[in-house]
Nucleic acid binder design. Structure first.
Length: 824
DNA sequence: AGCACGCCGACT
DNA sequence: GTCGGCGTGCTC
């Protein structure tokens, strides 16, 4: 603390390393450097990164050589202290490093990493005699192109291991290396043109036109366009955006340059924002309905004691109106507001509506913006130019300082959870912590709340407000449950379609309305079976049946992706009598087209929409009504809102309800929402047809009565019965190993050991073995963690201890393991 | 995450 | 014999 003269800075690096590292703060930076600023540092042998200063102090680390900070990249901090606290919590709670959180938080343009450049040594005089073949290839390539990146060298050599060659070339003084930091944020500039003052009189203009007419007709056209533009468009001054003008005149840049060099046009370049500031600002005052007012008051009353309120509002009840009123209040208090939406929902009308109300106080942030645009939003939040941010889960990480309110709309939506790269976080839950850091309030809104949020509202952890009056007298869809057993008895089934379903489809099509059919299995048939010996082909890696995909004529494993061509004969007995059992979306699509040959039918599942674009295209085709019937898996239950859909069919409620995943039944309710009344579908009542082999399921009764709360209560009881946590978070440990049996055994062993430590918290190894990915078997052990972090800490500790022991016990050289959160 | 070092199997 | 695979450990 009272050490030497020198100053040091703890720097957080955007890497998966658990510590921050200490660098020497050079004297010339002492005055200007502050925590939260980015600095350029060398880390490791040569790599240069942009890290963030966490702390400045005078305590020299012991027993290490300390590298200096190379330069300061910012004049002002790019994050507040609040973000550091938030990052620490995320790293701890979701078991990852702070560097990984930082990596996820910062827009790409603020994250810098050096690239190695390879250049010829200035003393090298093209003496190739001593060089090996590979060395020669590189030296020759450098003679042609003076700077090569490591990537380019890999290409030249057709090999990924280039380091040995580079090392030997360095030794022989043939090449030198340079590390280059690439600044990725580029402010956007726009060039403006203006007619020079010399030509302000009509006279001069006319003689100029005469001159141009002969020699430069294109330039004349450009000039005329300019004159037309300045006369007709509503503009400020005579400066016109060059690109807009060129486009209008159908001219190219050289034509404009010509006019500039002849001093006919003046030019200027201005840094501009990437977002239009002429937003259609049109604040409309609206009154809340009596029911909405009650819900609003109830919410605020809850907030006096609790920081989170769950707003359960049926579709079409006007939850958004309540959000808007609350946002307005918080802005008036000078606070920032974060409004989180699930991924797909952002394309909807909500953005337009909020823009009208909040004008350029509103910032929108989601993955469709590029790195440059995101950086601009980041900076505007930092400078508090935005008071409201509407965005997806990643907008949680923007540099807020005085949040007053966080709204999480459609709080049950699974896209709030980041699955793949660390940090594996649940944005809804993390939002609650973020709000806690600034004593902000949280509003979770949903028409079909998640079981865990509902549980919290019952136990009193969250406040609860309700809105069950539909705005403008919109009607609930009618629900019809069709008994498939009876239909089969009466022989009124056409393949998998009951008579009422077909009739209703026909009726909807006649009225030019659209239909969504739901089947929670993809592929053609979930399995095939030998009629002679009863053999069912299974995945060689996973303990699951192979699904038959008719279009590709393949058998596929839906866990690991294994595929092989469809068997012609039974692998066990050689019989050719193979039976196709059950049905998936592909089969539904196939058979539907036989019943309705004239109708445009499309299928939406992972197989049919491999890319995000394909997904969007399908949605827009359905929206334009180029498709009449959409058959799909879970994918159709989320975030879609089609005005013209009047019928939803659930082909097999049995499969939905008996699915091992607890959330499947919840999907039925979300599907129902698809045909519930919304603003665009006034006075039209949708219909839901549910086919089921048994009409006795409790869920069906809840669905028929539109009783979401009753269903959630039953669901919570059911989960309790299965000892499945309704509200706690879950750690998912995945063991990966080359050998299937070792992997399964170790998982069992680990579960047993963990049970001894935290008996009630271990759900044991999950069956089946999930699959073989990258040659490693995959087995999960699920651990419930308490909501408090103490339990979590104990389990984390135990896992760390067990990890070493496990390697000895299992006798294999490496155990890969991943902690995931909340596998639901 | 990179990158180096070190240990093994299959080839110019 | 060495090239190149990957497992392991370190980076202020």
């Amino acid at each position: 603390m009272f050490g030497g003269e020198e100053f040091f800075a703890d720097v957080l690096l955007p890497l998966a390393i658990s510590k921050s590292y200490t660098f020497l703060l050079p004297e010339e930076l002492r005055e200007s450097a502050l925590p939260g600023m980015r600095v350029e540092v060398q880390f490791g042998k040569k790599k240069i990164y942009a890290g963030i200063i966490k702390q400045i102090h005078r305590a020299a680390p012991k027993n290490v050589k300390i590298k200096p900070i190379l330069s300061l990249l910012d004049e002002k901090p790019v994050v507040h202290n609040l973000q550091f606290k938030f990052w620490e919590w995320i790293a701890d709670y979701y078991v990852c490093t702070e560097g990984e959180v930082m990596e996820a938080a910062l827009p790409a343009a603020l994250k810098l990493e050096s690239e190695t450049e390879v250049l010829l040594h200035p003393e090298f005089h093209h003496d190739y005699t001593d060089l090996s073949d590979k060395e020669y290839v590189i030296a020759e390539a450098l003679a042609l192109q003076p700077v090569l990146s490591i990537g380019e060298i890999k290409k030249v050599l057709h090999s990924n291991s280039v380091y040995p060659v580079i090392q030997s070339l360095l030794k022989k003084n043939v090449i030198i290396l340079k590390e280059k930091l690439i600044e990725r944020y580029k402010p956007k500039f726009e060039t403006y043109l203006k007619l020079a003052v010399d030509y302000s009189s009509e006279e001069k203009l006319h003689s100029l036109m005469g001159q141009l007419e002969k020699r430069a007709p294109k330039q004349l056209a450009l000039l005329l366009s300019y004159l037309h533009f300045t006369k007709t468009e509503n503009h400020k001054g005579d400066w016109i955006v060059k690109n807009a003008l060129l486009k209008k005149a159908n001219a190219s840049s050289p034509h404009a340059e010509g006019l500039v060099s002849k001093k006919i046009f003046e030019t200027k370049t201005v840094q501009v924002g990437r977002f239009a500031d002429d937003i259609n600002f049109d604040p409309q005052n609206f009154e809340l309905t009596a029911a909405q007012k009650i819900a609003l008051d109830e919410t605020k009353k809850n907030w006096e004691e609790k920081s989170v309120t769950l707003l359960f509002g049926v579709t079409g009840s006007g939850k958004t109106n309540i959000y808007i009123k609350l946002i307005e209040e918080k802005i008036a208090e000078g606070k920032q507001v974060l409004y989180l939406l699930p991924e797909i929902a952002l394309t909807s009308q909500i953005t337009v509506r909020l823009q009208k109300i909040f004008g350029n106080k509103l910032g929108i942030y989601h993955s469709k913006f590029n790195a440059q645009e995101r950086t601009e939003i980041w900076n505007k939040v930092l400078q508090k130019e935005y008071s409201v941010i509407l965005g997806t889960r990643s907008s949680l990480f923007l540099p807020y300082e005085n949040l007053g309110l966080v709204i999480v709309d459609e709080e049950q939506d699974s896209s709030f959870k980041q699955q793949d790269p660390a940090p594996r976080y649940q944005a809804r839950d993390a939002a609650i912590y973020l709000a806690h850091l600034t004593s902000a309030k949280v509003l979770l809104g949903s028409a079909t709340p998640s079981a865990e949020s509902y549980h919290h509202s019952i136990t009193g952890k969250y406040g609860y407000a309700e809105l069950n009056e539909r705005f403008g007298g919109l009607q609930l869809p009618s629900i019809e449950i069709v008994d498939l057993k009876e239909q089969q008895k009466n022989l009124s089934m056409q393949s998998h379609f009951s008579e009422p379903l077909i009739e209703n489809i026909r009726e909807a099509l006649n009225k030019k309305e659209q239909v969504i059919l739901f089947q929670n299995r993809r592929g053609f048939a979930p399995f095939i079976e030998c009629a002679t010996c009863g053999e069912v082909p299974q995945c060689p890696h996973c303990d699951v049946n192979l699904t038959y995909h008719k279009f590709e004529n393949e058998l596929r494993c839906h866990y690991c992706g294994y595929k092989r061509s469809m068997d012609k004969v039974c692998k066990a007995c050689g019989s050719t009598n193979l039976r196709i059992q059950g049905f998936g979306t592909e089969k539904i699509e196939d058979e539907l087209s036989l019943i309705f040959p004239e109708v445009k039918i499309a299928r939406m599942d992972v197989d049919s929409v491999r890319t995000k674009q394909g997904h969007n295209r399908l949605i827009s085709e359905f929206e334009k009504q180029n498709i009449q019937i959409l058959v799909g898996t879970q994918m159709v239950t989320k975030g879609l809102d089609f005005d013209n859909v009047s019928l939803v069919g659930i082909l097999s409620a049995d499969q939905l309800i008996n699915h091992p995943d607890f959330r499947s039944a919840e999907r039925a309710f979300q599907l129902m929402e698809q045909v519930s009344g919304r603003a665009g579908r006034k006075n039209k009542q949708g219909k839901v047809i549910i086919q089921s082999l048994s009409t006795k399921y409790l869920v069906l009764q809840f669905l028929q009565n539109h009783d979401v709360r009753g269903f959630l209560q039953a669901e919570l009881q059911e989960r309790e019965r299965f000892f499945y946590p309704p509200f706690t978070r879950v750690i998912q440990i995945t063991l990966k190993h080359k050998d299937k049996k070792t992997c399964a055994d170790t998982a069992h062993w680990m579960a047993e050991r963990l049970k001894k430590i935290e008996a009630k918290q271990i759900l044991g190894p999950v069956e089946p073995i999930v699959g073989k990915i990258k040659n490693l078997y995959n087995q999960q052990v699920i651990v419930k963690g308490g909501t408090g972090t103490q339990m979590l800490q104990r389990i984390k500790q135990s896992i760390l201890l067990l990890q070493n022991e496990m390697q000895e016990h299992a006798g294999f050289r490496q155990v890969h393991w991943v902690i995931d959160t909340d596998p639901n």
